[in-house]
Design a protein around this nucleic acid. Structure first.
Lengths: 343, 343
DNA sequence: CTGAAAGCGCTTACAG
DNA sequence: CTGAAAGCGCTTACAG
C-alpha cells in the first residue's frame, strides 16, 4: 500500500522497492549501488537483476544527504569563447565510464557571480568544483577547497597546497607567439591583453611577451594594451592601436576571438593581414581555421586540460590530499595571419 | 553539543541552528525561507536577522527531498555553436532576481546522450528542464513532461499539450534569406542543411527555403544538401556543392558557423564572396561581425528565446497547466557576404 | 556476509 | 500565527 502510494506521487522506483523485489535489505541494495565491499556475488547479482527489472535509478539528492551526489560543477566565465567548448569535451570524455556527471554554470566574467556560483554549487552538493579562468585569490580558493575538492583551469598557483591546478605554460606560449612573429620579420609587436587585475594567466602571457621581446632585441617596442571583453571595448582598443602614430606591424592577442575582432577592425581600416599587420591569437579554437584569413594561434589543447582536470578532481574526491599541478606545453600553429610574404 | 558536532563535519549552518538562534521552531524558519503564508512580520524579521548573522544558506539537496531544488536544467546539443551562448545569457537574465539557478549539460549531438542527460538531470532533482535543439519525438517529450515541467527551444510542436515551446519562425526565417538573396540577383540558390531525420527546425527551414524558391520563380534550382556537424563533413559537402557541374551562385546555410566554414572553403577554391557566391547564415551570432567578410544572417534573438523559456518554465513550476507556444519573428541582418556589387 | 535503525536537512500536513 | 512530528530516499555505523 505504502509502496504504491509512493509510486503514484513521484513515479520513481526507490531503493526500498528494489530491496523488496530482491528479497534483501535496503542496506544491501545501497552497498551494491556504491560497489562497497562486503556483499556476496549472489546477493549482488540478485540486486542487479531487480534494479534492471524495475528500472531503478538512484536519486542524487538523497544520496547527497549522507554521501556523494556524483555531480561535478564546472564554472565557466564566458560561453562566447569557444575554447571552453574544447575543455568541456575533455571533461565529458573523462567522465564517460563513471557515475559522475558534469554540470556547467556561467559566471559571465563577474567576480561577484563567480563566488556566488561556487556557493550555489556547494549548496547543490556538488562533489567537486572545476573553476575555469578564475580571478579569485589564494584565500578564496583555499576557502572553497576546505569545503569541497577543487581544481582550477587557467589559473597559475604552483605553490597551492589544497587544490590542484591545470594549465598550459602561458609564459612559454606567449614567447612562442612573439618569436614566431619576429622570425617572420615583424618588429613592432604589440600585445592586446585583457583588463584584469587578478588573472594569473594574463600576467604570465604578458611576462612571456616581454621576455621574448627582450630576447629578440626589440624591447623598445614593448606595448601592452588592455581592454575588457566587450566587443565595443576591443574595437576601440584595436582602433587606438592601429591609428596611433607608431602603428605596430603585428599584434599578439590574448585569445582567438579577440584576434578575430582585431582582424576585422584592421581590414575595415584598409590594412591588409598579414602584409600590413601580422596577427597571432591564443587557444587555437575552431574559428582559427574558419576565418578567411586563417588565424595563427597558440594551441594549449583544451581537451587535454579538461580531461586531466576531471581526472584530478575525481582522484581528490576519492581521497588524495597532496596537490598536483599539471602543465601542458603549448605549441604554435601558424596560418596565414602571421606569414608575411616578404621574409 | 550536537550542534557543534554538526558544524565540524559539514561546515554548514542548518535550519535548526537558525531556529535556535531566533528562538522559533524549525517549521517557522522553513516558512520564511519559502516565503510561505502564515508567518507574522515579527517572526519573519527575527528569522531573517538570524539567517544573516549565521550566514545561513539552504541545502538544495535537502530541500529537494520534499520540495524544490530551485535548480533548472539546460540541455545544449553543442557548445561550439555560439548561438547557445546568447540563449544562456537570456536565461540567466530571467533568473537574476529569483532563487533559481540554471545548470547546463552538453549532449554533444547524440540522441543517446540527450535522453541520458535528461535522466541524469531528473535524478538530480531539477525542478524543470529546458531542452535546446531537441531531436526527440512527442512521446519522449511527453514522458519527460509527465515527470517535470519542460520547455523546448528550437523544436516545433505547436500542438503539444504538456510542455511549452519557444521558437522563432524558422520557415519565415528561411524565406527571408532566400528572398534577400534573390533580390540581390542570385538565382541558383542552394541550401546547406544538417543531416537529421528528426529536427523540426531544420524541416521548417527547408520548407521555407522551398517555398521562397517557388515564390521567386526559381524552383528548378532547389537543391538541399545535408551534412553532419563535423567540420570535415561540412567541408566535403561545401566542396561537393562548389565543384559540381551546376555550381550555385548562393548558399543558404542552416547556422552561422557552417556558413563560415563554407566561406572558408570557397575562398580556398579561389571563389570570391559575395561576387562568385553569396552566403547567408542563421542565428546572427557574434562571429557574423567578426568574419572579415561580414556574414549576412537571420537573427532570431537568442537572448529573448532564453529569457522567455526561463519565464515559462518557472510559470509551469508554479503550477500553470495549459501549454504555451512562444514564437518570435526573425529578421534579416544583411552584411557583405550577400551584397553583390552588381545589382 | 547481512540487516535494523538512526540520521542527513529540509518540507509538509496537522494540531493547537 | 506557531510548532511538534513524520517523512523524503538514501548512507552509515553498528550489531549479528
Amino acid at each position: 500500500m505504502k509502496t504504491s502510494d509512493g509510486d503514484r506521487k513521484t513515479g520513481r522506483v526507490t531503493i526500498r522497492e528494489v530491496a523488496e523485489d530482491a528479497g534483501v535489505s535496503v542496506a544491501a541494495v545501497s552497498k551494491v549501488l556504491r560497489d562497497a565491499y562486503g556483499v556476496s556475488d549472489t546477493l549482488r547479482a540478485k540486486v542487479r537483476v531487480s534494479m534492471d527489472r524495475l528500472g531503478y535509478r538512484p536519486l542524487a539528492a538523497a544520496r547527497g544527504m549522507r554521501g556523494q551526489t556524483y555531480t561535478l560543477g564546472l564554472i565557466i566565465p564566458d560561453l562566447r569563447n569557444p575554447f571552453f567548448a574544447d575543455i568541456m569535451v575533455g571533461v565529458n570524455q573523462a567522465l564517460e565510464r563513471t557515475q559522475y556527471r558534469a554540470l556547467m554554470g556561467i559566471s559571465e566574467n563577474s567576480v561577484r557571480t563567480e563566488m556566488a556560483l561556487v556557493e550555489s554549487m556547494l549548496d547543490r552538493q556538488m562533489d567537486g568544483i572545476i573553476l575555469i579562468g578564475s580571478t579569485e585569490d589564494r584565500a578564496n580558493h583555499d576557502k572553497i577547497a576546505a569545503l569541497k575538492p577543487l581544481v582550477t583551469i587557467g589559473h597559475h598557483d604552483p605553490q597551492a597546497d589544497h587544490f590542484d591546478t591545470v594549465n598550459n605554460n602561458d609564459q612559454q606560449g606567449a614567447m612562442l607567439a612573439v618569436r614566431h612573429l619576429a622570425a617572420n620579420g615583424y618588429k613592432n609587436i604589440a600585445m592586446l591583453s585583457l583588463f584584469s587585475g587578478t588573472s594569473t594567466i594574463l600576467a604570465e602571457r604578458e611576462l612571456g611577451y616581454r621576455r621574448a621581446m627582450l630576447e629578440a632585441g626589440i624591447a623598445k617596442n614593448i606595448n601592452i594594451i588592455q581592454s575588457s571583453q566587450s566587443l565595443r571595448d576591443v574595437q576601440l582598443a584595436a582602433r587606438h592601436l592601429l591609428e596611433g602614430p607608431n602603428r605596430p606591424d603585428a599584434i599578439f592577442c590574448w585569445t582567438d576571438f579577440i584576434a578575430l575582432e582585431v582582424i576585422s577592425v584592421a581590414t575595415e581600416m584598409g590594412l591588409s593581414i598579414p602584409g600590413d599587420v601580422g596577427i597571432v591569437g591564443y587557444d587555437n579554437t575552431m574559428y582559427c581555421d574558419l576565418a578567411q584569413n586563417g588565424l595563427s594561434s597558440i594551441d594549449q589543447s583544451g581537451e587535454l586540460l579538461g580531461l586531466q582536470s576531471a581526472r584530478l578532481l575525481i582522484e581528490r574526491i576519492k581521497g588524495r590530499q597532496e596537490a598536483e599541478h599539471f602543465v601542458v606545453t603549448p605549441r604554435l600553429v601558424s596560418r596565414r595571419s602571421s606569414m608575411r610574404l616578404s621574409r
